[in-house]
């Protein structure tokens, strides 16, 4: 095919595509920011080497994990509470997400112009991190599981509110038009055509929300919002490293189990 082309002609194609002055400047600035940041906040080799023995020491003090039955029972109760926070928060969050998603979904919403208000709320819920919400709720309703559950609710609305609305927007338009043509109202079109069509996506999103909730409910205790995280914080604060390692192992097992379970459910429902 290329018998006529001179094999050396590829030297005329520049190896690097040329950069404009602006692109070049941006590249330099990005490079400088990366180098300065590494210099400022990442561990220097010296610091790392100095820290290494202490890290080994910590691990050494962590083994063997505490297996005292009384302690394990307390951890188990805390794990149950963690699950309850995740499940209650996800369930309430999903229930609230459906009407909110309906209000904010383009072409499905009964509100003409007000939809963006709901969209903005959902974005706000999503962009503020869960630990910040937990701090806010601990400050307003006090320490404990209730603050944790409220955090998971808000977190779930931020997640499901967005993806439910997208699923509603993507639902098949033809049945919606057909029901509208025979005099069905907005709400009955939602229940009769939009939700059945979006259901697989709802289930998938809901399972992801549950998985996410289990993970966040584990750390919420660090700021006093209930669950297993609270025990972990106490263990570290009191230098009870054998307790800490037992708790970390328990968290590892529980999150792994949860992921396995939601994967199974996803396969079952898809």
């Amino acid at each position: 095919m290329s018998s006529k082309t001179d094999p050396r002609s590829d030297t005329r194609i520049p190896r690097l595509s040329s950069l404009s002055a602006l692109e070049f400047t941006v590249l330099i600035i990005v490079g400088a920011v990366v180098i300065v940041s590494i210099n400022d906040v990442s561990p220097s080799p010296q610091r790392f080497v100095e820290g290494l023995p202490r890290m080994f020491k910590l691990v050494e003090r962590m083994v063997p994990p505490n297996t005292d039955p009384q302690f394990l029972w307390r951890i188990f109760l805390r794990l149950v509470e963690t699950f309850q926070i995740a499940i209650a928060g996800t369930a309430i969050g999903i229930a609230l997400s459906i009407p909110i998603a309906w209000m904010s979904a383009r072409g499905v919403t009964p509100l003409a112009a007000g939809a963006f208000v709901f969209k903005s709320f959902v974005s706000f819920f999503r962009t503020v991190p869960d630990l910040v919400w937990a701090l806010i709720f601990v400050a307003s309703v006090g320490l404990g599981a209730v603050a944790g559950t409220m955090t998971i609710i808000v977190d779930t609305i931020g997640f499901c509110g967005r993806f439910f609305a997208e699923a509603m927007e993507d639902a098949d338009k033809e049945p919606q038009e057909a029901l509208d043509a025979i005099g069905a109202g907005r709400f009955t079109v939602l229940c009769g055509a939009v939700i059945p069509d979006a259901m697989p996506s709802f289930i998938n999103t809901g399972l992801f929300a549950l998985e996410k909730a289990v993970r966040s409910s584990v750390v919420l205790g660090l700021v006093g919002a209930g669950g297993i995280g609270q025990e972990l914080k106490v263990a570290f604060d009191l230098f009870q490293y054998q307790n800490a390692s037992a708790i970390i192992l328990a968290i590892f097992v529980i999150v792994l189990l949860m992921e396995h379970l939601t994967d199974r459910l996803r396969i079952r429902f898809s």
Binding site: D172, E174, P175, E177, A178, L179, A181, I182, G183, G192, A193, P196, D197, M199, P200
Partner: peptide, 17 residues
């Protein structure tokens, strides 16, 4: 509209019901 039946060209059925 509730006194009228309308049959669309592409049927417009809800597929998953």
């Amino acid at each position: 509209r509730r006194q009228i039946g309308f049959v669309f060209q592409n049927h417009g059925l809800v597929k998953r019901l």
